[in-house]
Amino acid sequence: MMDVLHFAVLTMLLATAFFAIWFKGLLPSAISLSMFSLMMALEFYILQAPDVAIAEASIGAALSTTIYIFAIRACSKPRKAGGGDKQ
């Protein structure tokens, strides 16, 4: 059972790391990197390192994603008035 979970987490690590490079948009890439950090925290927890798992989950999955999204928002073009979806 634990081996199946471990293998699934490792596969998700590879998939999220691939999608973080593969996406063209910056925002899906940042979200995929956040998923990568979450999977990394699970992996640390499976390998019995809960300290590193807490640090990874709080910094990698939450804080760095917030900072990435702020940076993407600061660098993007100003939106036109009349709806955010139309661009």
């Binding site: 809960p50 300290d51 807490i54 640090a55 709080s58 910094i59 804080l63």
Partner: peptide, 11 residues
Amino acid sequence: SPGGGFQGGAI
């Protein structure tokens, strides 16, 4: 318990 200064401050 697991955790410490750095982890709690990050939370």
